[in-house]
């Protein structure tokens, strides 16, 4: 059995305590579905883990202004089952119910999913299309940032030293049409296409490149699947060649456009 490298565990019970503790070597820890794997593989070797699970204020799902705020400790399963999410963000709930497998969903948090910035994250692609924001706290105060700006590359976010993600804010737009289509043959998707439209349209191509790629247009019908398939950055790997993945992108973008009522 692979053994986790040695570390020391901190258990703050308030956000202020946690903010005093975290730095590059003291990593925030919640579900651990990505972090503990990376530690077992030797890819990450923090000497301290700061367990955020004792901070009750990060567990809430609540309506916040015109959106829904999902606390940093909320797991994929908890969010997908939460009445507010089911009622106001049914499209997101459907995405969450298909992330990874039931064990990953029951343990892993949405915030952790974004912070790990795995290029094939379903959640990142969906939240970008939905216009989601990341709520961030530091000793200096609080700020919010679009998920699109937060996820800047593979396993890389715009989070700065001393900052913690406290939650995710997803706007609720009753007239929004949303679709998420993915192609998946292993534990992570080969391609995920998220699309949302009301008075304007956002389409996000996830999983095939180093980070989710966003395309905007006035309406779904203005999106050109073939042009998008030519333009996206594609990383070939064991799940497919560049040519194959570009083909998939074209097919799935066309399907997403159709799902939103576009004509192509």
């Amino acid at each position: 059995m692979g053994v986790l490298p040695a570390f020391r565990l901190h258990r703050p019970t308030t956000l202020a305590q946690a903010l005093e503790l975290v730095n590059d070597d003291r990593m925030p820890y919640a579900g651990g579905t990505e972090l503990l794997l990376a530690m077992k593989e030797g890819l990450l070797r923090p000497t301290h883990l700061v367990d955020l699970k004792g901070i009750g204020s990060l567990r809430d799902v609540r309506e916040s202004g015109s959106g829904v705020s999902i606390g940093a400790l909320v797991t994929h399963t908890q969010a997908a089952d939460h009445p507010i999410v089911v009622d106001r963000l049914a499209g997101l709930a459907a995405v969450l119910n298909r992330v990874g497998n039931p064990r990953v969903r029951a343990t892993g948090t949405l915030a952790g999913n974004l912070c790990f910035a795995e290029p094939r994250s379903d959640v990142a692609a969906a939240l970008i299309a939905l216009g989601g924001e990341v709520e961030i706290a530091s000793a200096e105060g609080r700020r919010a940032m679009a998920v699109e700006d937060f996820v800047i590359g593979p396993y890389t976010t715009a989070l700065e030293q001393g900052e913690l993600v406290t939650g995710i804010l997803v706007p609720v737009q009753p007239d929004l049409r949303f679709a998420y289509l993915k192609h998946q043959t292993t534990e992570r998707p080969t391609l995920g296409v998220a699309a949302a439209a009301n008075s304007h349209c956002s389409l996000v191509v996830g999983a095939v490149g180093f980070a989710p790629q966003v395309f905007r247009s006035p309406s779904p019908s203005d999106l050109d699947p073939s042009a998008i398939a030519d333009r996206v950055e594609v990383v070939p790997d064991l799940t497919g060649s560049e040519e194959y993945k570009r083909h998939l992108v074209e097919v799935y973008v066309r399907r997403a456009v159709a799902a939103l009522g576009g004509r192509r």
Binding site: G2, L36, L37, K40, K53, T77, P102, A106, T107, E187
Partner: peptide
């Protein structure tokens, strides 16, 4: 597999399934 992919290590914690290979006993 020790990567939460194969499922052989599944146990239930408070009724929820977890991959015990990558779940801290401390939790």
């Amino acid at each position: 597999c020790e990567m939460q992919v194969c499922g052989v290590c599944t146990v239930l914690v408070d009724g929820q399934p977890v991959s015990s290979c990558t779940f801290l006993a401390a939790d």
